[in-house]
Design a protein around this nucleic acid. Sequence first.
DNA 1: CACGGACAGGGTACTCAGTTCCTAGTCACT
DNA 2: AGTGACTAGGAACTGAGTACCCTGTCCGTG
Lengths: 232, 232
Amino acid sequence: MTSAPKPPMRDTLVAAALQLFTEHGFEQTTVDDIVALAGVGRRSFFRYFPSKESVVFPDHEGCLREMTEFLADPEGDAADPVDRVGDAARLVLRMYTGDPEFSVRRYELTRQVPALRSHELSVVRRYERTLANYLRARFAARPDGRLRADVIAAAVVAAHNHALRTWLRSGATIDPDAEVDRALQYVTATWSDREDREPEGGDAPDDDVVVMVARRGTPMWRVVQGVQGVLE
Amino acid sequence: MTSAPKPPMRDTLVAAALQLFTEHGFEQTTVDDIVALAGVGRRSFFRYFPSKESVVFPDHEGCLREMTEFLADPEGDAADPVDRVGDAARLVLRMYTGDPEFSVRRYELTRQVPALRSHELSVVRRYERTLANYLRARFAARPDGRLRADVIAAAVVAAHNHALRTWLRSGATIDPDAEVDRALQYVTATWSDREDREPEGGDAPDDDVVVMVARRGTPMWRVVQGVQGVLE
DNA sequence: CACGGACAGGGTACTCAGTTCCTAGTCACT
DNA sequence: AGTGACTAGGAACTGAGTACCCTGTCCGTG
């Protein structure tokens, strides 16, 4: 009795909706069915969720706010911008891994229902725009800064989602952090300029020269890995 | 009388819808309003368009089919994969530039109407998945081939859309091809492995050695550009 | 010419998501 | 008790999308 004095209506609605969606399908379930099972009025459903789809993604609003606050924190201005948005993306991963059963069930559902896929796209897009806007500010002085920001934001989101889907498809059995680290490292190895903040050590002169030797035919990602390794 | 013996119903519906949407707004216009102006039955509207939103994007189905055929053409197998998907993306640009007035009007409309933005997202996603699936096949033998494919597809789409939006915001006054070339070159310079098909000349030995010299602090994209230039 | 199927278009009635407006209960603070 | 603010419920409405059926026309064949 100490843990659940009153389950809030919002959670009740989410649970009822998920149960009916998985049992009878999304299209076959009406909002009236949900509120009947939850024992609340129909009007209350739309007070908590703007649409039938949004009940499947109940915590994204909060996560988006969290990401915005994270990127607004001036403490992060010292970090490499690409690393920073990578860490911001990891906030989304934490939200998913915070409730693995729910996330896996939702993944199965979303895979089958076009309306839910479309809604999820809109949500992901807002994360991407948040990251892109942050990068645009950080790259304001660069040539092609806006283009660079948009491309990197898209790449980070794609890498994060790739890792997330891999984890979800495994039924939440593999290590999600390792998966996302690998995917994001793949992007940061290409786009990050971590050497920008390198000189803070003081003992490495600014004008060191780095030599990269590559055999003709070497894939570009190997070249990048090599240069990256030397510069670090 | 030689040019327009009968304007097909589909085009009539598109014209009527666009006119009403721009005059009174998307939400304020009902499907009944559209079919009344077009002089057809309501039932016919949904015979040609699956939803009220889709009438704003009447040619994307055809363009997606065109892109799929383009990527299925075995003639392209000799080209660099990233260049290939870049050219596929250019097909979308051509569709937009084929009717600049319509594209600019649609852009203004889509910017203001969330339902249209969401629908456009779904359309763009289908392009991205088409590109990603092509790259997955091309990268099947690579380590992290699927991750690489997803990230590159996202980057190409983001770069293309950046250039497209720049062109649309200019009111279709600037050169769209130059804009897209610049944006895509920005991505291919990083991700392409054009040196893979280099040895076909025959006079450049396979095991040439390339040396890249970079000052510490050089942005990674400069390094890539330099290596790229030498390897070509 | 008669018949019969295939097909493009139209009309009617229905379901259901989402909105608007109104009512009722319930705290909290005087 | 009174009052204001907040939360929930309910009834009625709009409009997108669907199911079903009707109509005309354009084919072929007998």
